[in-house]
Design a binder for these strands. Structure first.
Length: 400
DNA sequence: AGGTATTCACATGAAACTATTCTCTGAGTTAGG
DNA sequence: TAACTCAGAGAATAGTTTCATGTGAATACCTGT
């Protein structure tokens, strides 16, 4: 009781090195978006007609993660809505992230989410999809207005459920009398539109915009801008920002990652009791972010995934590479021992592919010639994390 | 030696099935007038 | 007769299984020198 009490007492007395931590969260919208002037202006040009109740061209935005796509679009939309309100223009902007599980990752849920944006609820299941579309149409057409619909991570959506939804959405305008809708698609994948229905493709990307990655210098400036507001004066040692930017530049200029890193470094510094952030903190943050991410992902996987993953981790030390067949055998044994039901090899093959996607393992398809074709699997994470993960899996699978 | 045909051990695709969650509908039941 | 209950039909969805087809290159098997 006493020590904890003291801890909190001290904690409160100690001065935080953060001034305004929210600046380092991904939801933060800076007043000034650095190095994106051109893109902002482009987006604004394209969407501006909406303010005069003309239908803007549909817009498609490409760019890798952390290149400011989402930020820029939201920034533009926010000021458009402000102007619209001031001038009594019936403009509505809707932002939807299609990747969010259980929110907007299927056709039905996407439309029901849209309905929610208009202030109505629709049951989460049980209704035919057409019904939901009808409700949406009626809702849309209830008043004269222009709707700007932003679909973020749209590539994830089509990967999962195809492009029929997009086709329907692009066609909506011909069904509406009083409103019009303008689509803004945001995609991380540069080759996204390649395997899209040509009709959808042409109408969706009437205008296209590419966000190039930031270079190291630009990342530094952005970090400084944020750090200045986020941290108190003189809490960052020389070289920290530079190194942080270098880390991110290595990962195709992902600023979000850089900002994350800086925040975690700050938290680590604070926890260790110092009043400034050193490069060591940054390095620690780098490995912590990485390991947290992986462990988090792995523990959130279903049991069957973990049962497949466990033998891989177990053997990763002895063998540099494993093949699907071997793993399937081990997995089968594991299931028998813990008397869970065994999945087919077909399924396990898919699971391995997904674990690869998640970045927990490396699974390359190779041909061993006469001896068949298979995945060559190795663990793609640091050994320390492997050990930690092994323990966690043992617990969650209730092995001894 | 050089060329080609086989063959292995899975990969990959498509469709169908299962189980769960949820709505809607209409028949049967109940309570009140 | 109006309100209520409850079972059954239908939907959406996630996770699988079943069946079918595809595939890259190390070997086996020829062929002609």
């Amino acid at each position: 009781m006493e020590p904890i009490h003291n801890f909190f007492e001290n904690y409160l007395k100690k001065e935080s090195i953060f001034r305004e931590k929210t600046v380092l969260l991904s939801s933060y919208d800076p007043d000034d978006v650095l190095y994106r002037k051109e893109q902002l202006q482009e987006v604004a040009n394209i969407l501006a007609p909406a303010l005069r109740l003309e239908k803007p061209s549909n817009l498609f935005i490409y760019g890798k993660t952390g290149t400011g796509k989402t930020l820029s679009v939201r920034h533009v939309l926010r000021s458009m809505v402000e102007i619209a309100q001031k001038n009594q223009v019936p403009l509505k902007s809707i932002y939807i992230n299609c990747k969010l599980k259980r929110v907007a990752d299927t056709e039905y849920r996407l439309i029901s989410q849209l309905i929610k944006e208009f202030g109505q609820e629709v049951p989460s299941t049980g209704l035919p999809t057409d019904e939901v579309y009808n409700i949406f149409y009626q809702l849309l057409d209830r008043q004269d207005q222009t709707v700007l619909l932003v679909l973020d991570e749209i590539d994830q959506l089509t990967k999962k459920i195809g492009d029929e939804v997009l086709y329907n959405l692009t066609r909506i305008n011909s069904e509406l009398h009083r409103s019009q809708i303008c689509l803004v698609g945001i995609s991380n994948s540069l080759i996204f539109s390649e395997n899209l229905d040509p009709r959808v493709k042409s109408s969706l990307s009437e205008e296209e915009l590419i966000f190039p990655p930031y270079n190291a210098i630009q990342i530094q400036d952005i970090l400084r801008q944020r750090a200045q507001r986020a941290f108190k004066e003189g809490t960052i040692q020389a070289g920290v920002i530079e190194k942080c930017a270098a880390y991110a530049a290595r990962e195709h200029g992902d600023v979000r990652r850089a900002i994350d890193l800086l925040r975690v470094a700050g938290e680590l510094a604070e926890r260790s009791g110092t009043t400034f952030i050193t490069i060591t903190h940054l390095d620690e943050a780098e490995s912590k972010v990485e390991s947290d991410k992986i462990i988090n992902v792995a523990t959130n996987q279903p049991k069957q995934f973990q049962s497949v993953l466990y033998p891989i981790l177990l053997l990763s030390k002895q063998k540099k590479s494993l093949f699907t067949g071997e793993i399937y055998d081990l997995y089968k044994n594991l299931c028998k021992r813990s008397s869970t039901n065994v999945l087919t090899q077909r399924r396990v093959s898919d699971i391995l592919a997904e674990l690869d996607m998640l970045g927990i393992i490396n699974a390359k398809i190779i041909s061993k010639g006469r001896y068949g074709r298979t995945r060559e699997i190795s663990v793609s994470i640091d050994e320390n994390i492997v050990i930690k993960l092994k323990e966690i899996l043992e617990k969650s699978l209730q092995l001894n």
